[in-house]
Nucleic acid binder design. Structure first.
Lengths: 219, 219
DNA sequence: GTCTATAGTGAGATAGAC
DNA sequence: GTCTATCTCACTATAGAC
């Protein structure tokens, strides 16, 4: 590992920052080059084109998110606890890489990005995302079946969790206006974790009686 | 009111649909013109330029959202009930205008849209949004002070509610993949309302004892 | 691996006839 | 109000020297 970033990594960093802030169409290769300290043409030596750069940036981001979440998507922890701790780990990951949430949200919300054909690398990104969502879905379902969670609709709950965590850290200037504080200050991150965990715990946990019922179910 | 849309309204409709799907930078005036059934130059007769068109689209959308939410942001209803009913009304509004949520979310998340100076009309949009957020903030604060809601952090709760409602209906193809169903089908909308209301009620309501405490507080 | 130069396209916007 | 024609500029991408 070189202590100085390779040109390729530098380009990826710059691209990640710009794509997160402005979206695919809002970014020009000229600006990516300038901020990378390279000539415009040098970019095309490292990446086939803007499309591939975007895809590689997305892959890197999604892998980071997957790595943060993976330890909690196993079968070893109780579902509600795994959900709470997983969301905390995700928030920590977002806090460490402030562009991640925006890029994730853009990937979830944005469509019709490529007018012609999309770069083949995007499929890898889609697959990482798909696996992640599948694992999360299974976790929630396990929680419901175990009686730890209320009888929520699993897909809607997925959407709720994404909205709860990803939107907040993607909300930029408007989020900071609402918070009256930097989104990624350590106090704001700590508070967000607390609020999200409380919201999830109170909002999704099965009421006492249900949980007892489930445990005692003799069928 | 003419039964046939004026050119201006037609352009606004087309612009709204395109800006919601692709964002400001992803939309070309040529495409707006074609879908409006006009020549490119005719657009510039109705709007000073792309920036103004975007601003007008945002204003129209935000006014729709404000009108849907306004009845529940008064002081007349109990806060938790107002919150639940307000979110339902917002969901109904999103369901009626499927571009609204996306455009709202884009407005909240997107920055640095204009490279040069931004159109003056955008300030009107920002003000509508600011008033809306202020009113929502006050509602939550009233709920906490009245002891109806837990002692949540008000700004974080705002963010949570936005994420819960706006993200879902902005999530497009990915949301439909998660749901396994069209986002705006009547059954999906009904279910979303139920899930959001339950999540809010269970997740934000103060526990029984607190609510009793507050009511009996003799100080 | 980086550069200069440039091709080629499409963007936003304007002028002026009808 | 709408059109055709045109301007200027920025964009992605390539060619080829170093």
């Amino acid at each position: 590992m070189p202590s100085v970033l390779s040109s390729r990594d530098k380009i990826l960093d710059v691209g990640e920052s710009l794509f997160a802030r402005r979206g695919y169409a809002g970014v020009g290769m000229r600006e990516v080059a300038q901020l990378s300290g390279l000539g415009k043409s040098s970019l095309f030596h490292h990446f086939r084109g803007k499309g591939q750069l975007y895809a590689e940036v997305r892959i890197r981001t999604l892998k980071r998110i997957r790595d943060a979440l993976a330890p909690f998507l196993t079968l070893e922890t109780a579902p509600l606890e795994a959900l709470e701790e997983g969301m905390c780990a995700l928030i920590d990951s977002f806090a460490e890489h402030p562009t991640s949430a925006r890029l994730l949200l853009r990937g979830l919300v944005e469509e019709e990005i490529f007018s012609g054909e999309s770069p083949p690398e995007l499929e890898e990104a889609e697959q990482i995302l798909a696996e992640l969502l599948d694992d999360l879905s299974e976790l929630i379902e396990r929680g419901v079946k175990a009686g730890e969670l209320r009888a929520v609709a699993v897909p809607d709950t997925m959407q709720s969790l994404i909205g709860l965590v990803a939107y907040h850290f993607a909300s930029g200037a408007m989020g900071e206006r609402i918070l009256g504080e930097a989104l990624f200050s350590s106090s704001a991150v700590r508070r967000r974790k607390r609020e999200v965990v409380n919201f999830i715990r109170e909002g999704l946990r099965a009421p006492r009686s249900d949980r007892d019922e489930e445990r005692e179910d003799p069928t």
